Computed example of a mutant assay.
Amino acid sequence: MPADEQPFPSVWTRPQSQRREQPALSREQIVSAALELLDAEGIDALSMRKLGTRLNAGATSMYTHVANKDELLELVVDEVYGEIEAPATGDPAGWQAAITRSAHSMRATLLRHPWIVSVLGEAGLAYLGPNVLRLSDAMLAVLEQGGFSLKAADQAMNTVVAYIIGASTSEAAWLTTLARSGQGEQQWADRLWPTALQAVEGYPRLRRLYAEQRAQSLSDTRDDDFGYGLECVLHGVAARLAPHADL
């Protein structure tokens, strides 16, 4: 069925091909090559033609599995989500710790593949992918076991994920800029420092803040900032569950 004739144009809603002959390429090969290309060159480098050249394959071999670039991105996004550690149930009182571990795993995964943050809102029905569904259901299970209703668990999960993606988007943009510059994070900071000091000369609080941060590792600072924000989000979510609890 052509993509423009599907009820919803998505790789997850398109019926699988009934061709009897074995296609020259597997879906796994196509997704793996696309992921390598995206990690190496970024989202702007991805095209069906370039991927075909990379695989030394014609369009027919690829179009057996994906109708277009949008469907390909749905598959690759789901492949990346397969790297995220899903939280495990078992301790109702430990839901915050379980969600925290999964949140840190999600952030680390997004930063390993920084191109992904630019397509998360555009990747069609990516949320119907098996790895996305696996992660979502596991998070809901942990929250439900921790005392949330299913609706409240869904709202809490969406809030936590929105924070992770929002924070990771800024970090990914920064890391992408660094990669393009060919400089290390600390090297970039050292070169920028005199200009930054001059810029905040008339702003006493920023000047003090910059001075305090000067000796800190930028990577450690990013880790600390993410952890602090995540803790605030989870405390807020917990307060909605038990408004009178001593948090």
Rank of each mutant, 00 (worst) to 15 (best):
M1C: 09
P2Q: 03
A3H: 12
Q6W: 00
W12E: 10
R14I: 06
Q18L: 14
R19L: 09
V31L: 14
A33L: 06
E41D: 15
A45R: 03
L46M: 13
G52V: 11
T53F: 11
R54T: 09
A59H: 13
T60P: 03
N68Y: 09
L72I: 02
V77L: 11
E79I: 02
I84E: 06
E85N: 04
A88P: 08
T89R: 14
T89F: 12
G90I: 05
G90F: 10
D91M: 10
Q96R: 15
Q96E: 11
Q96V: 11
A97I: 03
A98E: 15
A98W: 15
S102A: 05
S105W: 04
L110Q: 04
L111F: 02
I116K: 01
S118L: 00
L120N: 05
G121A: 11
L125F: 14
D137S: 15
L140R: 14
V142Y: 10
E144K: 08
L150M: 08
N158H: 12
A167G: 08
S168I: 02
S168P: 07
S170T: 14
E171Y: 03
E171P: 01
A179W: 01
R180T: 11
S181N: 02
G182I: 07
E185C: 02
Q187T: 13
W188S: 14
W188G: 07
R191V: 13
T195Q: 14
A196I: 06
L197N: 00
L197K: 00
E201F: 00
P204C: 02
Q216D: 10
D220L: 03
D220N: 03
R222E: 08
D225F: 04
G227F: 02
C232R: 14
L234A: 11
L234C: 11
H235W: 13
G236Q: 07
A239C: 08
H244K: 12
A245L: 10
